[in-house]
Computed example of a mutant assay.
Amino acid sequence: MKTTSSHGLHHLHTASLCTPYLLLVPLGLLALLLALPSLGSSHARSQGLGVLCRGAAGTDGGGGYHSVAPTGADEKKASVVADADAETPPRPQPDLSLLVGVLTMPSRRERRDIVRMAYALQPPASAARVDVRFVFCNVTDPVDAALVAVEARRHGDIVVLDCAENMNDGKTHAYLSNVPRLFASSPYDYVMKTDDDTYLRVAALVEELRGKPRHDVYLGYGFPVGDDPMPFMHGMGYVVSWDVARWVSTNQDILRHNDTHGPEDLLLGKWLNIGGRGKNRYDLKPRMYDLNWFMDNFRPDTIAVHLLKDNRRWAATFKYFNVTAGINLSHLP
């Protein structure tokens, strides 16, 4: 009350020092009415924040790329509703749902912006719910922490796992282990792990998944070893069904035997092989592949192309897949 009173007196001072204090009551009510709209909008924006693993059980991950509802679609629909009492037909349920986790590091902000554009400029996958999240371990650097917090507030597509940042020391296990808990309220049919140097064509992957089982699936670029055509999948990107991710999250033998240290994509195949999981395996070669040195091996039926380690390679990829077609830089508004 002391703050409110001094604020009211400051405005009343120019009129008269003898004005009765009762005038503060209507002024306080007016201030409250003015503040309510801004408080409401702040609350609405907060719903789009990314998931923080610690204490985030039961959340659905906030905002980010969502193929069912393109950016601004809901607002456009709302603007054309003239009658508040008119019945709105229910949105059709998607035939398939996919979570894409892009494993990255806090310092790679420019790369994440490129990858976001790569997803945002693609057409939505038909009758599918596809959500993309960028996955970190704990952000310990104070500069990175501040910038990642802003990024999460702006885009709503950040997932922070409770682990030390690493490449071959348990991050993939942490991701697959946390997904069933973090997204328990709205589970997916499939969970994907991919990297921030992979260009994934979402609609092509969805069409490949559409005719597949929803149980015990392990799909990607198969890596042959001896007589086994695909004991594990290449790390550029692979998909497991929800039940497989849930099995990884509850399998204590993996942690008991300290079996998360080493080449993580190979280790995932090892866990599944020992546990008899992921029996429905699908090799997507040659539609998933590494981009070669000369960048001349693109395929029109690509599902994912890997090794986009610099902006030059991303630019070549966008050009090949007509992402920039029709954009004339000299005539931009």
Rank of each mutant, 00 (worst) to 15 (best):
Thr4Arg: 12
Ser5Met: 10
Ser5Arg: 10
His7Ser: 07
His11Ala: 09
His13Ser: 09
His13Leu: 11
Ala15Gly: 08
Pro20Cys: 01
Pro26Met: 00
Leu27Tyr: 10
Leu30Tyr: 14
Leu32Asn: 05
Leu33Thr: 02
Pro37Gly: 08
Ser41Glu: 14
His43Asp: 00
His43Asn: 02
Gln47Val: 08
Gly48Gln: 09
Gly48Tyr: 13
Leu49Asp: 03
Gly50Gln: 01
Ala57Tyr: 12
Thr59Cys: 08
Thr59His: 07
Gly63Pro: 00
Gly64Ser: 02
Ser67Ala: 14
Ala73Ile: 00
Ala73Gly: 02
Val81Arg: 15
Ala82Trp: 15
Asp83Glu: 01
Leu96Cys: 07
Gly101Asn: 07
Leu103Asn: 03
Thr104His: 00
Met105His: 11
Pro106Cys: 05
Arg108Ser: 06
Val115Asp: 09
Val115Asn: 06
Ala127Ser: 11
Ala127Tyr: 07
Ala128Cys: 10
Arg129Leu: 15
Val135Leu: 14
Val135Tyr: 08
Phe136Trp: 01
Pro142Gln: 05
Asp144Val: 09
Val159Thr: 09
Glu165Ser: 11
Asn166Gly: 09
Thr172Val: 10
Asp189Ser: 04
Asp189Tyr: 07
Lys193Arg: 09
Asp196Tyr: 02
Arg201Cys: 14
Arg201Ile: 13
Arg201Trp: 08
Val206Gln: 11
Arg210Cys: 02
His215Ile: 04
Gly220Leu: 02
Pro224Leu: 03
Pro224Met: 03
Pro231Glu: 13
Phe232Pro: 04
Met233Gly: 06
His234Thr: 02
Met236Ser: 15
Gln252Leu: 12
Ile254Leu: 05
Ile254Pro: 03
His261Gln: 07
Gly262Ile: 01
Pro263Thr: 14
Glu264Tyr: 05
Glu264Trp: 06
Leu266Phe: 14
Leu267Trp: 02
Leu268Cys: 05
Leu268Ser: 04
Gly269Asp: 04
Asn273Glu: 06
Asn273Arg: 14
Gly275Phe: 03
Gly278Phe: 07
Lys285Val: 06
Lys285Trp: 06
Lys285Asp: 06
Tyr289Leu: 12
Met295Cys: 11
Phe298Asp: 07
Arg299Gln: 06
Leu308Val: 04
Leu308Pro: 00
Asp310Pro: 15
Asp310Trp: 03
Arg312Thr: 12
Ala315Tyr: 01
Phe321Cys: 01
Asn322Glu: 07
Thr324Met: 13
Asn328Phe: 13
Ser330Asn: 10
Ser330Gly: 02
His331Glu: 11
